[in-house]
Design a protein around this nucleic acid. Structure first.
Lengths: 155, 155
DNA sequence: ATACATGCAAACAATTTGCATATTA
DNA sequence: TAATATGCAAATTGTTTGCATGTAT
């Protein structure tokens, strides 16, 4: 799923076109990973200084109902990304920037007989860590802090 | 980890013995699975009618810091069970009763080279569904509803 | 014109915190 | 008695909802 497809879907289902809706979807297009309501509000507050969380939450919830977005939870916060209709898969999730990378391995394939009595209805497999670019950024920051300490040591 | 070990640990660390603390741990001993703050409050409200959520949350949080309990999240609710020090593993989680069953398979073993650039810091693998006994209970309930409908049909 | 979208304010639920009091070692 | 535990009440955070208004079709 992506912004363009989502816009078409919304139109077909009779939902109205609004700039905010489009811009929220645009964010997901640009991001290619998970976003929280808060991140969306932050990202949009230049274009829409008064944008309210209700609108964001309502749209996220609508998008989820329409299978435009899929939801997961991180640290008690709901986060969303474009729903992937094509096939079942899992994700690497960067804890710093929220970007995700799809992995095609699903552990469930190997587990058919783990416990025949247990009726499986769902599963979650997520890998957390830091993507290459965030690792580099963190190294940069570390270095900067170190350098500035050298120049003007803290009291 | 179990109640007895936990009590010793608390004592050694200088925390005081209280009946509530002991009873909370006792609950986990009996349950052998996940409990939420709400479930704990419900279970203890006979013995301690006025027990406050603060106490429960504070103790859960303490127990987690001391590695007595481990935490995960289900439907936006934090749930806890005894921490397993022995070895790394994952769980089947019954969505009805919260009981868990350990499974020894860890998908990470097979994933060492998924993305060498991604710095892995953690992962979550959980399987959700219904345990045998909850399946039976649900069937019972269904049957009961059906039977009672036969006797006195709803308007 | 009509249905849908939004903002506002208020409600909600889960969780956390400051402070005074009570309890354990 | 000295340190820790608890209850109370209030704050915080993330999220949801009712209602009046605004806007896209």
């Amino acid at each position: 799923m992506n912004k363009r497809e989502a816009m078409v879907l919304l139109k077909n289902k009779g939902y109205k076109h609004t700039d905010k809706r489009e811009d929220i979807l645009e964010l997901f297009d640009q991001k290619g990973g998970y976003l929280s309501a808060k991140e969306i509000q932050t990202a949009l507050k230049d274009s829409y200084p008064g944008i309210s969380f209700d609108t964001i939450y309502r749209n996220l919830s609508l998008f989820q109902d329409l299978m435009i977005l899929e939801e997961t939870e991180l640290d008690g916060e709901k986060i969303y990304q474009f729903h992937c209709t094509e096939h079942h898969h899992h994700h690497l999730i960067c804890l710093s920037c929220g970007k995700t990378r799809t992995i095609e391995v699903c552990p469930m394939q190997d587990l058919s007989q783990i416990d025949p009595e247990f009726q499986v209805t769902g599963h979650k497999f997520e890998i957390y860590g830091y993507c290459k670019s965030c690792q580099l950024k963190m190294k940069e920051t570390e270095k900067k802090n170190h350098d500035s300490m050298m120049v003007s040591p803290k009291v």
